[in-house]
Write a protein that binds this DNA or RNA. Structure first.
Length: 857
RNA sequence: GGGCGGUUAGCUCAGUUGGCUAGAGCGUUUCUUUGACGUAGAAGAGGUCAUAGGUUCGAAUCCUAUACCGCCCACCA
């Protein structure tokens, strides 16, 4: 293959991916060779929605996970990156129901089994998209072991776990208040409810006493939801409250109804809020429910699952929406003269995270998991530090959450999902049994007939078991190495995976957790369809290349922090790929012209050679450290700097003189290997294009360290300093000319005349005698170098010289002040003090020479 | 109400146990058809590290308080 002038990612990426995939490079070593003894490295991909498209957050997820995977693969480990596809119960169902709606149908037109089959077909039509997109992002995952969330092995494990819970009494059926979305007709777990601040009103309403006392005829309560008055079964006051002490135990005549309800004492009533008296509606408010439990109150359901008032709300109100009913109730109270004012307040209201409908707390029979024993074990494990978190503070946040965890409602009224393997006795509604024959709507057990629970599991009940389900083929790969996922899933997923795994496997699910923050838009705003600021990762890939997206995403990003997406970083990364491409192109040209290597490793050119070996070593060592600590952004910067500022700008530039073929080949290979996890496509494309490389880059071994002659490497540092200094003068001298660079008594200059000339474009680099020294002296300690500029220019440049002397003088002052401080000399590390002294000495020597020079001009 | 994070160059952000002149990319200024790359090369400019105290020989970094921005959790009706 020939190198074109510019790297065009679109021309190569698909083929390169296919090359990897077909070669089997993504499979784990131990699968290909059962005798393989290398250390396991396992990452389980958080399964994207099988039915969806990838968003930019997936871009970041895949970037981080694939960097880790490829890095560890190059390090020779038995690497396994396991892809997955989620059935995304609720999400997918919402999409499908919308489709039904468009066709003029509803879920009630079909049986559950029919619906399940329809969605199954729908999802399988869509499914390829997501997987193609993962490939476009370069995910080097093991496609042969992809797990779909409804695969038999998932369902089997889920049933097994449910059965275990059942037997241990951790599953119970309870009629409790659940968070219900009246639009989607399903309940949610607490954590799935989005709380939003809303402006509302606090209405004050008088409740007349059934038997007025001398001092009191009514109690004024405050509420944000007047319509629930119809379901009130008590009024609570605080028993400490002197205002109400005398009426505790007496009755209230509940307005708009014929009911009398008791006045009870409960700690829930806060003397300092509102009027100190609270209406209690156990069937429609979480707190009131708890009060109701304590006082054994009746529960009256006045709001139905359709979001409308029920018969029990009374003839007048039945059938109204809650909003209409609120208005009606307030009107009626007004007419009765029972309104006692209102005030504006801001309060938190729960919403459906999908459709924004206000979540109604409604009484419903559901399956709950008793979380206490699960959480307890997880807390112990976390406190013992058995799982390492990045960022570290997430560990504490999770512990804190688990300590206050409530029971988990795992029932969902959605056809798309794993059916709950529970059956109810048709003759005895309280008799439930665990049975996995969910394909049958009715079964007979023990001579009794049972009907299947129509509900499905909360998706998270199965996905929280993902780590041991996906790795079930290889014990060696469990617990997995790291769980990389979004910080928003700490409670919802990470916490549950830990609890589930500890219970089911009696082991942690992963050794480390790395959580990334959200990818915000360029101005730091959350991306959303409604704002129209969504960046599509696949479009970005086709515009700039997959590697550019990957490098751009990880740049300047640290664990757990939400960060803006930066197009400029993507562009910079695209340019880096192009740079590397052209570096390779030049090296290939040199190799083609000079197939025989000439005198490597000695002579003057060895300065740069040792220097680049040292720099490659440094990057190598630093990368190993950074990768261990998940410092991706710094690793990316480091590689950028190596390729561009070191390899291309200095090493390759000087190699244009020497053309040390073997070294060029070898150093390029090492650079390609180290960069490969971060820019897999361009590095592999280059590897395939180079004439001398064999096999696939993805399968190479991480580079060994070079042997380096430190002295020579340091000499090259000095050359860099000299060259930079000269260039700077050439730029800023009046006329911007190029001038001879003369020197005397300077071994380094003597040995590197050719190189200096090449890098500075100076017309010549003559050696002179001390007494011939004149011109502009370079301010470089330890060297005697003069730019031979005409006297008139030198005079014009006097101001510049004075500036430099002034600046140097300031630096000297700083150093002297530091050394004058006896405490510094006494307490600071010896090396540091020594360094300060040396530096001061050098600068003093230099300033003396410069002052002398000023005299001459 | 509780908890967490942020505030560093015009923009987006790095800066690990305190250490020498605080870095990167983009943008910006000047110069350059050099044996690859103009998606380039070279040289620059640009920062009272939010504010106020404190600890220290030494603070962007540690401590305390304040301000502003953002996120999460929680039952204040």
């Amino acid at each position: 293959m020939k190198f074109s002038k510019a790297y065009e990612p679109n021309e190569y990426e698909t083929d390169i991916y296919a090359l990897w995939e077909q070669s089997g490079a993504f499979s784990r070593k131990s699968e290909k060779n059962p005798k393989d003894k290398s250390d396991p490295y396992t990452i389980v991909m958080p399964p994207p929605n099988a039915n969806g498209n990838l968003h930019i957050g997936h871009g970041l997820t895949i970037a981080l996970e694939d960097i880790l995977t490829r890095y560890h693969r190059l390090r020779g480990e038995d690497t396994w990156y396991i892809p997955g596809a989620d059935h995304a119960g609720f999400e997918t169902w919402v999409v499908y129901e919308r489709k039904l709606e468009a066709e003029g149908k509803t879920r009630f037109d079909y049986t559950r089994d029919e619906l399940y089959q329809q969605v199954w077909d729908f999802v399988h039509e869509q499914r390829g998209n997501m997987e193609l997109q993962l490939r476009a992002l370069g995910a080097s995952c093991d496609w042969n072991n992809l797990v779909f969330a409804l695969d038999q092995k998932v369902v089997d494990t889920v049933y097994d776990t449910f059965g275990k819970f059942w037997k241990r009494g951790l599953i119970y059926r309870g009629k409790k208040l659940v968070n219900f979305c009246t639009k989607h007709q399903t309940a949610f777990a607490d954590i799935e409810v989005t709380h939003k601040e809303e402006k509302g009103k606090l209405w004050k309403i008088a409740y007349p006493l059934a038997e007025p006392t001398d001092s009191m005829t009514e109690i004024v309560i405050a509420t944000t939801r007047p319509e629930t008055l119809l379901g009130d079964t008590a009024v609570a006051v605080n028993e400490e409250d002197p205002r109400y002490k005398d009426v505790i135990g007496k009755k209230i005549k509940l307005p708009l109804t014929n009911r009398e309800i008791p006045i009870i004492a409960d700690e829930h009533a806060d003397m300092n809020y509102g009027t100190g008296a609270v209406k209690i509606t156990p069937a429609h408010d979480q707190n009131d429910y708890e009060v109701g439990q304590r006082h054994d109150l009746k529960m009256i359901t006045v709001i139905g699952f359709d979001g409308k008032m029920t018969e029990e709300a009374g003839e007048k109100y039945a059938g109204l929406t809650t909003k209409e009913c609120r208005k009606a109730v307030l009107n009626d109270l007004e007419e009765l003269g029972l309104r006692r004012g209102e005030e504006d307040i801001v309060h938190e209201v729960g919403h459906c995270y999908k459709c924004d409908t206000v979540i109604e707390p409604l009484l419903k029979e559901q399956w709950f998991v008793d979380m206490e024993p699960l959480a307890k074990k997880a807390i112990e494990t976390l406190k013992a530090g058995k799982i390492k978190f990045h960022p570290a503070n997430k560990q504490k946040v999770l512990i804190n959450y688990l300590e206050n965890l409530k029971d988990w409602n795992i029932s969902r009224q959605i056809p798309w999902g794993i059916p709950i393997p529970a059956f109810q006795n048709v003759d005895d509604p309280t008799d439930w049994i665990y049975d996995t024959r969910v394909n049958e709507p009715e079964i007979v057990s023990d001579g009794k007939t049972y009907r299947r629970d129509p509900d499905t599991f909360d998706t998270w009940f199965s996905s929280s078991q993902w780590p041991y389900i996906t790795t079930s083929d290889s014990d060696k790969h469990f617990p997995t190495s790291v769980m990389e996922t979004g910080a928003d899933l700490l409670f919802q997923w990470v916490g549950r995976m830990i609890m589930m795994s500890l219970f089911v496997k009696d082991d942690i699910p992963f050794k480390e957790v790395y959580m990334h923050g959200m990818v915000l838009d360029e101005h730091g705003q959350k991306m959303s369809k409604s704002k129209g600021n969504v960046i599509n990762p696949i479009e970005t890939v086709s515009k700039y290349g997959s590697d550019a997206l990957r490098l751009g995403l990880i740049a300047s990003r640290s664990a757990g922090v939400n960060q803006a997406f930066s197009v400029s970083k993507v562009i910079a990364s695209r340019n880096l790929c192009n740079k590397l491409w052209n570096v390779s192109r030049l090296i290939q040209n040199i190799v083609d012209e000079n197939p025989e290597n000439e005198n490597n490793g000695d002579g003057n050119k060895a300065l740069g050679e040792n220097w680049i070996r040292r720099e490659i070593n440094r990057t190598n060592k630093e990368l190993v450290k950074l990768m261990k600590n998940y410092r991706f952004a710094e690793a990316g910067d480091m590689l950028y700097d190596l390729v561009w500022n070191k390899y291309a700008d200095w090493f390759l530039e000087s190699e244009k003189l020497w053309k040390s073929t073997d070294l060029l080949k070898d150093t390029l290979e090492k650079v390609l290997i180290m960069l490969h996890p971060f820019a897999p496509f361009v590095t592999e494309t280059i590897w395939q294009a180079l004439s001398w490389t064999e096999g696939l880059l993805i399968n190479q071994k991480w580079p060994e360290l070079y042997k380096v002659d430190e002295e020579r490497a340091k000499n090259f540092d000095e050359i860099i300093e000299i060259v930079t200094n000269v260039r700077s003068h050439f730029q800023s001298l009046p006329g911007s000319g190029l001038y001879p660079i003369a020197f005397h008594d300077d071994q380094l200059m003597y040995e590197n005349q050719l190189l200096i000339q090449h890098l500075t474009k100076a017309p010549s680099v003559p050696q002179i005698k001390v007494e011939e020294a004149k011109g502009l002296r370079l301010a470089i300690p330890g060297h005697n170098i003069y730019l031979q500029i005409p006297e008139d220019i030198h005079k014009k440049y006097k101001a510049n010289l004075e500036d430099r002397i002034l600046k140097l003088g300031q630096e000297i002052n700083t150093l002297e002040a530091r050394l004058r401080n006896p405490k510094y000399v006494e307490k600071a590390p010896k090396e540091l003090v020594e360094e300060t002294r040396n530096s001061l000495e050098e600068k003093n020597g230099l300033i003396a020479k410069m002052k002398a020079e000023l005299e001459l001009v």
